[in-house]
Each structure stands twice: as structure tokens, then as C-alpha cells.
């Protein structure tokens, strides 16, 4: 297929400078997973140039564009499952879109109010706990939260000096329990990257999570 033809079917622009911007996105995600409970922001100049189809936010799109490729099948939750999103991700990442959460390397959760369990995703095996799904969870608010359906969490574990407090949402009422179950399976389990469109919060499987009241 000629290059022009590829551009003709390209739905929307991805990263303007894939080499440098992928590095920036990766370092932000790396810092977020290394320091759970701390919000790490993507530069506005980067997210501002990404024009992803709804409902993917620029930040979630940036993460997938930086990390996914033909080796990593992507699962889309019901809210994200539309032709434009599929075309955008398969065009820019070369990833296969899968209907099976259990074989996905990445899962995009556009509507976390429907995310009540995590055990459908790949937890890896005891021999190879790395063969697991990483969830990218889009939330409306992250940090100080007040909204209906949001949660406030107390985090401990690797990457946290003492304890960290963080809130996000709205999410499904069952998610905190599902996160606790996920921690209980360690070293198996899934890792979460939570984003409100600008900030990124890492919730690796190693983090112990308790819910705090408002």
C-alpha cells in the first residue's frame, strides 16, 4: 500500500514527535508506578497536540501510543469500544484490538463506574507474573476529590516512604475491594495507570490500598 493511502485512512494525528514524546510519556508513567500515590503530570504541550477520538482522553491516548505496539493486544471497555477508537489505536500502535480481557496487554477503561472486578484481566502466572494486563483507567477527577462516586485511598507499599493519600473517581463501588483482592494475589495481579486527562497516578499490584472516608 502506498504511504499516501495510509495517511488517507489515518483517522487523527497521534504523537507529533514519537521518539522524544514517547520518552517523556514513558518517564512520567515510570515515575508514577515507582511512586504510587504521587500524581505525575504530562506536559500540556504534549497532550495538547493529540486529537484522539472520543472517549479516549489525550493522556490515555499518549500512554498507549508510547507503550503499545504489535506485540501488545489492547482490550477496550464497553464505553471505549467503537470503530474510531479501534482504528486510531491499530493505526498508530499497530496493536490488535482484542475482545478478551484475559489476553490483553493493555486495557483501556473509559468508564470506571462499570469496572467492578479485575479478575477477568490477565494476572500473569506464578512463574511469569509479568505476563499480565496493565489497565489504563480514565477518571474525571484525580487528587483532591469531592464528587459523587469518587474514592479516597490510603496507600502503603513499595515506592511510598510512609503512607500516601490520594483520591479519584467516580469509580464503581466494588473497585476498592477488587484492588485489595488484586494485592492479595501478589506477585500475580494487574497494574493500574489512572489518569484524569493530564495527571497520571500509578497503582501497581504491590500497593496496599485502604479506603478512607470523606
Amino acid at each position: 500500500m502506498p504511504v499516501e493511502a495510509l495517511f488517507a485512512i489515518s483517522p487523527r494525528p497521534g504523537l507529533a514527535d514519537p521518539v522524544m514524546q514517547s520518552q517523556t510519556v514513558f518517564r512520567t508513567v515510570m515515575a508514577a508506578l515507582a511512586e504510587p500515590g504521587t500524581i505525575h503530570a504530562l506536559p500540556e504541550t504534549l497532550t495538547g497536540t493529540i486529537d484522539a477520538p472520543a472517549p479516549i482522553t489525550p493522556a490515555a491516548a499518549a500512554i498507549l501510543l508510547a507503550l503499545a505496539d504489535y506485540e501488545t493486544p489492547i482490550f477496550l471497555d464497553e464505553a471505549a469500544r467503537n470503530a474510531d477508537v479501534g482504528a486510531f489505536l491499530s493505526f498508530h500502535c499497530g496493536s490488535r484490538i482484542t475482545d478478551s480481557a484475559g489476553e490483553a496487554s493493555f486495557a483501556l477503561i473509559a468508564d470506571p463506574t462499570s469496572l467492578d472486578r479485575l479478575d477477568a484481566f490477565a494476572p500473569g502466572t506464578l512463574d511469569y507474573p509479568d505476563r499480565s494486563t496493565t489497565l489504563i483507567v480514565q477518571v474525571a477527577e484525580l487528587g483532591d476529590v469531592s464528587g459523587e462516586g469518587s474514592v479516597r485511598l490510603r496507600l502503603t507499599g513499595p515506592g511510598i516512604a510512609d503512607t500516601a493519600r490520594i483520591g479519584f473517581g467516580p469509580v464503581n463501588a466494588g473497585l476498592v475491594a477488587a484492588l485489595a483482592d488484586n494485592r492479595a494475589r501478589f506477585p500475580q495481579g494487574v497494574d493500574l495507570i489512572v489518569t484524569d486527562g493530564a495527571g497520571i497516578l500509578g497503582l501497581p499490584r504491590s500497593t496496599r490500598i485502604e479506603e478512607e472516608g470523606f
Partner: peptide, 22 residues
């Protein structure tokens, strides 16, 4: 870039499972 992505993904797993050899 493909190699970097593959290594970056491995690094993220390594951070999530401290001490496990990815």
C-alpha cells in the same frame, strides 16, 4: 523505538513486582 517500547514495558513490570526478574 520498538525495542525501547519492549524494554520500557519490561521496566514497568519490574517496578510493579519489586525484585522479580522480568
Amino acid at each position: 523505538e520498538q525495542t525501547k517500547r519492549m524494554i520500557r514495558r519490561a521496566i514497568l513490570k519490574a517496578i510493579a513486582i519489586p525484585g522479580y526478574q522480568v
